[in-house]
Structure formats: structure tokens, C-alpha cells
Design a protein around this nucleic acid. Structure first.
Lengths: 335, 335
DNA sequence: ACGCTAATGTATAGCGCTGTAAAAGTCAAA
DNA sequence: TTTGACTTTTACAGCGCTATACATTAGCGT
């Protein structure tokens, strides 16, 4: 069922059939009809692999994320998948599973002609290495881990969002605001930025920074968060609010607080980050800093399409919008 | 940077280079070394598209699921992605977004030579149509929606799992067990099977079926579930346990019960289904029927590889194992 | 009827790789 | 040295499509 078969049946050349398939304008109606009949009769479908080899374009993009079942990444993947579909691309999802070697392989995919471009949320690989690997791969980076000058990049303004989140808690009359948590084991750039914004807001409000309010955790799991906050509460920490580095720590905070007999939000307000399904489905529903995932997806694709169309300048850094989804875990302090 | 370039530099034929690339055994060490040096010098990487055209195999599989950010599908996608990676395949994720036309397109992908096989969790398309579309596409179906004889299929024994789940609740001394929920708007085959197992267990225990315990919901959202259960409680329903059709309804049950002043699990036990992150991260953590997602993934790939290797017999139906993750929302009735 | 565009159609050379068939090389035994 | 039974390497025809360059036809004013 090749193009040639259709051409033979219709009694025309291959190119004419190809023209019909591609809706080329200079084809007479009579000819189009005749060719279409042959296509239908044979049930012809073009072979995309052959087309790719001939054109050099694959119509596919790689989306490389650490884990596709982590709610934030799952939601980002969905948005990117939808937006890419709208623009006529298909997505190959690459799970790097936080493995450096897997992250390197992502860049290689492009070289092997698998995809036209790559959207990559790195976790382990560093800025330098990305820049070194392949400066000529159409590449858009997400997240805060790596920001080389050679590749484009989309993220929200974490510092500003954290400042605003903290201000929201301050406006609710909360002054002793804890941050859950800085994680000991890893360099977590995003946590760092959020912590920065938190501190900026406190300073701006004239509240002295209290290091004991910045809680340290041993890992990223919910239990790590619960353990860290519980230990802090046991030490006598009495926060009026907890700003969390992500929704999972938001849930951890709620769990630790309720175990300690504190009510959310009456006694302690809690604010999560990422606005994932975890926040929406928690009870009470967790207020959360909400990066505009659709905007991130469409910005990333804008930049990527630009690169694929030949733009070869310096890396551009887009700041995506965010909101603070106020669901009920932030409330004025009852006095 | 083509095979020919490497061949020219090394002073050999293209096929010899190809042999080195593929670790073909009958290549002398001296030759292998020389060719490898040329490959390294030029930084050659094979063009996968061309290889595909020549071999007819793409090394890619399509995974078609309704929504990739729904926790159950995200987790299944992760497992399938990992297992496929282990076996040397890459995954194209196709979000059907519950759209019939998108589901049809999934089958078409294969015909266009994009992928070697398809793993498909249908939501809308029916058994008959799948059978009609393309009986010769290597296809493995997941879920309960469609089970044509022409394609392979993997699912857990929903009836048995529901029976066992119900028995667990009975063993905890609960007799008035509600089912949340049968959904009015849709034909939901999986809900139906689970309801069946629930009823079987009650009958086997000699407990008369009480239709008022089978709650009806208007939709699949958490609010639909909360509303349905709240209305039932308001009507005076006083269940000792709630068996839920999925984890989201599990969360809905917990929310509705706690709003009604009932404690989970002391007053009412709750059991979710799918064992997603929602269950693990709920407070208290939700006990849940846990399909073995890794087993589902590896069974699906076994069947698919078999088909891709030429098996062309009748559809095989594999039953995957499950467990009941007991986390704390099922407890003996305190009297 | 005659040129002259513009509209349609054809023939064919790649795209980069693999796989087949055949040629060339190697080595032990006769 | 020759033979036979390997192993190693080569040459080249596809895989199915696109795109270029060229050939033909149609339409239209003169």
C-alpha cells in the first residue's frame, strides 16, 4: 500500500498523489477526485517514517521529566501534551528518574533524529553540562535547576511568588511564619529561591528573621516533612502559619499539625506550592501557589518552535504567570 | 555525519561500519578499532529514522490513556514507561481526553508506521469498534471498558477484589457497608463489576442487600462524591463502612464523613480503590484496593511483544494480581 | 491561429540505513 | 602448495516518501 500503488491504480505519477495527500492547491478537481478514489479504494495511509526521512522533520518532541507520576510533572506533561497536539506535534515522554545518565540521553535523542526539539525539566544535570552537550539542539528548559545561556528557559518568579505568599499570610495576621522545609541532602535551587522570597517579605514587614522557623528536612517525602515539623513542634516551636516548598510538604504540615492537636487554618495557616491535585483533594483543600501550567506549556512551545524554525541566538528566559489559589487553609488569626 | 562519511574516513564499506555499530560478531578486532576511531572522531550517531525505514521497526510503542494527570493513569504510565525502557522501547503518550475521535486515532497511528504496537486504556470507544478498526494491529487493552476477542487484554479481577475488600470490612465488624458510588451519567463497567463483588460478599455473609446503601452520584469529581454521601447521611443513612469505587471517592467519603462529625476509621471505615498517591497522602492515609501496576505493565508488554513477534491468534485475557493496602482507614468497630 | 503565462503533471534523484549475495581473505589439513 | 571450510568485507538494491527540475496543457489576449 505505497504511494506508487495508488499512483498506478489512478494512472498518475507519485508526485500527483503526494500533492493530493498534502492538499496542494494546484490540482484540478477532476484529478483530485480520481486520486482520492484510488486512495480510498486501497485504504492508503502514508508511511510517516519514510516521510520523515525525506523531509528531515519528525513532528515529534521529547518531554523529559524526572517522574511522570509526580503530580506536578503529570500536570505539566498533560498541558504540554495538549498544547503540542494543538500545534501538530506528538510527545515522547522520557522519564529521567533523577538519573544523570538518563538526563544526558535526552540531549542525544535529538541528535539521533528522533525528535525535532526537546523540553527538559532537569533535576540532576548542571547548567554547564547542558551548555556543553549540544548547543545546537532546539531545547527549552523548565524549572530552576539549570539555566545555561545557550538554551531557552521558562519558569515563574519564585522569589516574587514566595514573597507574595508570605505577604498573604502576614495579611491574615500571622507573624510567626515557618518555612517547611530546606532539604539537607540536596541542592534544591527552587527551595532556595522560595526561601529567599519568604525572607524578603519578612524583612520588608519589619519582622526579624528567626532561624528556628526555617525547618530542615532529611528528604522530600511526606514522612520526612511530617517528622521535621513534628520535631520542631515538640521543641516548642509555635508557628502561626507554615509556608511549604511544595504541596506534599503542605500535606505533611497539615498531618503534623493535626496530630499535634492544632487546627488548620484556625490555629495555623498552611500554604502549599504547585497547586497540584494533592492540594485540591486535601481536606481541608490546601491553598497553594499556583504556577500557570498552561502558560508554561505554551511559552515553552513558543520558544521551541522558534528555535526549530532556525532562531539561533542567545537563550531567552521567560517568566510565566502564577496565582495563589486560596482554598481555605489560610485564614485570619482568631484572637 | 552519515554512515558513508565514517566509512570513507576509515577506508571501509558502509556495511562494515554498520557491523561495528551493531556489535556484529564477525568483525576483526583491528577493523573494529579502526572503525570505532573514525566514529569517535566524527562524533557519528546513527539516524534512527533511516534505520526505521530500512528495518520497518520503530522501537516505539503508543500508550493511549484518557488523561495523563489522573493519578491512576500517571502511575500506570510510569510503570509502563519504565518497563518499556527496560525492554528497549520508547513510549509515545497519547492523551485521548475521553474523546472518541482521539481514541480512534490511536489505532491509526500504528497503520502509519509510527509505532510497533499500542497499549490502550479505552474510555469511550466500544468493544465492537475496536475489533472492527484493525484486527491486525498489535494491541493490548487495559481497563474494563472494552474487551474484544481480537485484542489482548489485562485487568485485575474486579469482582473478586471487591468481594475481598467487602470481606475485610465485614471482618472489622462492619455490617452496614455503603458503596460510593454508582455514577448515573455514564456506563462505567468497572464500577459495575466492583458493585457486583460487593453484593456477592454481602450475600455470602448472609446480609440482606439494602439498596439505600448503594449511593448514586452525578459525576466522577470529588464534589460529586461529597455531595452524594452528604445527602445520604442527611437522609439518615448511618453506614459503618464505605467501599469506594476509586481513591477520589475515598477522599470524598472522608471529607463528607468528617464534615458530618463522624470519625474515620473509628465510627466509619473507608476503603478506596486504585492505591494512588491520593490514598497514600491523605490524612489519615486511605486504605485502598491496590492493583499491581508493575504486574499490569509487564503483562501488557509481554502480550504486546508476543503480538509484535507475529502471534496472531485469538485475544488473550490476563488477570493481574492485586492487594489491599491497609493503611488505617479500616479498623474494628468500637462498641 | 499564435505566442505567452500560469496551471498541472511527470520523471527521478536523493534522504541514511539495512540486508542480501557475492567476493575476498584466512588458516589448518592434506 | 593446494584445497576446503570457514571468517571477514564489499557492493548495491531497496525501504516509501519528498522535492527539484522539467514537460505538458490550458487559458487568453492579440
Amino acid at each position: 500500500m505505497r504511494l506508487q500503488d495508488v499512483a498506478t491504480l489512478a494512472g498518475v505519477s507519485m508526485k500527483t498523489v503526494s500533492n493530493v495527500v498534502h492538499d496542494y492547491e494546484h490540482v484540478s478537481d477532476r484529478m483530485r477526485e480520481r486520486v482520492q478514489a484510488a486512495i480510498d479504494e486501497l485504504g492508503y495511509r502514508p508511511n510517516l517514517t519514510a516521510r520523515r526521512l525525506a523531509t528531515g522533520r519528525t513532528g515529534m518532541l521529547a518531554l523529559a521529566i524526572p517522574e511522570m507520576d509526580q503530580p506536578y510533572f503529570a500536570e505539566i506533561a498533560r498541558c504540554i501534551g495538549e498544547e503540542a497536539g494543538r500545534r501538530g506535534y506528538r510527545i515522547i515522554v522520557e522519564q529521567t528518574l533523577n538519573d544523570v545518565e538518563a538526563e544526558r540521553a535526552v540531549i542525544r535523542d535529538r541528535e539521533e533524529g528522533l525528535v525535532d526539539g526537546v523540553i527538559f525539566h532537569p533535576a540532576r544535570i548542571d547548567t554547564l553540562e547542558i551548555a556543553r552537550l549540544r548547543p545546537d539542539t532546539p531545547l527549552v528548559l523548565l524549572g530552576e535547576a539549570a539555566r545555561p545561556l545557550t538554551a531557552d528557559h521558562v519558569m515563574i518568579d519564585n522569589v516574587r511568588a514566595a514573597r507574595e505568599a508570605t505577604e498573604l499570610l502576614l495579611a491574615a495576621g500571622r507573624r510567626r511564619i515557618a518555612f517547611l522545609a530546606s532539604v539537607r541532602t540536596e541542592i534544591a535551587e527552587s527551595t532556595h529561591l522560595r526561601l529567599l522570597g519568604y525572607q524578603e517579605a519578612l524583612i520588608a514587614a519589619g519582622i526579624p528573621l528567626d532561624p528556628s522557623l526555617v525547618i530542615e528536612s532529611d528528604g522530600f517525602g511526606i514522612d520526612d516533612g511530617v517528622r521535621a515539623l513534628t520535631a520542631a513542634l515538640d521543641r516548642g516551636l509555635a508557628p502561626e502559619a507554615v509556608l511549604c516548598r511544595d504541596d506534599l510538604f503542605g500535606l505533611a504540615a497539615m498531618r503534623a499539625l493535626s496530630a499535634a492537636g492544632l487546627r488548620v487554618p484556625d490555629d495555623v495557616s498552611v500554604l502549599g506550592w504547585d497547586d497540584t491535585s494533592l492540594a485540591r483533594y486535601a481536606t481541608p483543600a490546601l491553598s497553594s501557589v499556583s504556577p500557570d501550567k498552561r502558560a508554561i506549556a505554551s511559552s515553552a512551545l513558543d520558544l521551541l518552535e522558534d528555535r526549530m524554525n532556525g532562531y539561533d541566538g542567545i537563550g531567552r528566559h521567560l517568566i510565566a504567570p502564577y496565582a495563589i489559589a486560596d482554598r481555605g487553609t489560610v485564614a485570619p488569626l482568631a484572637r
